[in-house]
Each structure stands twice: as structure tokens, then as C-alpha cells.
Design a protein around this nucleic acid. Sequence first.
DNA 1: CGGTATCCCTGAGGATACTG
DNA 2: CAGTATCCTCAGGGATACCG
Lengths: 113, 113
Amino acid sequence: MKSSRECIEYIRPVRDVLDIINGKWKLPILISLSFGNKRFKELEKEVEGITPKMLSKELRDLEMNQLIIRSVYDTVPVSVEYSLSEYGKSLDSVIDALREWGKKHRNKLFAKL
Amino acid sequence: MKSSRECIEYIRPVRDVLDIINGKWKLPILISLSFGNKRFKELEKEVEGITPKMLSKELRDLEMNQLIIRSVYDTVPVSVEYSLSEYGKSLDSVIDALREWGKKHRNKLFAKL
DNA sequence: CGGTATCCCTGAGGATACTG
DNA sequence: CAGTATCCTCAGGGATACCG
């Protein structure tokens, strides 16, 4: 067992990440974008249950943190495309880990029934 | 680029996990316990900033989800020890991934200055 | 299409004090 | 020591409607 200080040091980076990908929507949005660039309406469908207001806000947050890129194309009507930045793509390992555990958890829950 | 249905299927397990480890405190608590069994007061110190109320609530949630074990010892005064369950330990990979990314993120922020 | 605006509510989370 | 009890704030999130 290590010292308390080491433990606190260990927690810090995780808290940093939690600050960035907090809430129920950010990771689902990032995952959706990891499947390919998406328009606003597409995201609204794939991230089930999200409202336009929340989607708009979360996209802004993610863009501010440089995880995604918002590209506006000068078509008529204007079209907007969201994509993962390289930095956002680097979250893959995190998403994979979460996903693997999530699948195990699901199996565990089913096994109980 | 895959179909929308695949994408939605892909997101589901991640949302399951998020439901379990949501909020700012659960992962820090789990990490602290990964360093060794802890008493309530010890956790209160190592999970910096948490109030006893939140700690109490989060511990209850984590216990309900079988991620931690609460052991009461019949001493005077009574002592309570929290430990990771095997199931809780299986979150290691998730925590590692988050932590690795968090460290990178920190470096990136520092590099900017 | 890609969002805003408005209103609303719950619950996460905090501060402080207290108890068996 | 291991929590409860109260009271409080505020942001996360939802519903619905609307706009350029």
C-alpha cells in the first residue's frame, strides 16, 4: 500500500479527464463521430435521446476542448459537418476500455436473470 | 463508415458504464480503494474536496452496484472498511486508460504555456 | 438544415452542524 | 469514527416552440 500522497497524485489526471468528458452525452457523441463525420441532424438521431439544445451545447464544449472540429460549408442551405480531431481520436483507447467493460457488465446483468 | 444502427449499438455499452460511474467522485473513490482498503475518514482525505455527505452517498451507490465491499468490524468504536470487490477491480483497465489520457492531456496543457 | 429561445425541474453537489 | 440532518445553490438536462 502506497502513501496517501501518491494516491492523490494518481487520482489527479483522472479528474482532469472527467472534467472534459463529463455528463451523459459527450462520450456518445465522440463515439458517433468515430464512425465518421456527421451533420447535426445525424448526430441527433444516433445519440439517442439527446435534445438539440444539449447537442448544441455539448458540441460547443467538445470543440472548445479541441476534441472535435466544426466545418461549415457554403452550400445552400449551409451545411455543417462535425469530425473528430486527432486529439479526439486519441480518446479511442479510453472508449475501447469503457466499451469492453460495458459489454462485460451487460453480460453480468443478463446472467443474473 | 458503418450504418447508423451499428453506431447506436456501439454506444450502448458505454452509456451503461457511464450510468454506473457517473459524477465527479465515483472513479476517484475507486482509484483510492485500488491503493488499498480504506476507512471512511481516509477516503475523505484522499478524495480531495468531497464532503462526508457525498462520500456516504457515493459509497452507497458503489456498494449497490457491487463495485465495493463495506465491512463492519465490531470494535469499540465500530470501524468500517471499504474495499474493492473483484468486480470493482476489473475496472482497472478503464481507470488505466483514463489515467494515461489524462496525463497526456496535462502535458499538452503545460506545453501550451 | 442547424440550430436558439424559453421555461422548467430535478438532482448533483456544497456548507455547516450535529449524533451514536 | 462513521456517518446524518438541514438547508441551499446551481447546472445538467428536458420539453416545446420557434428562427434564418
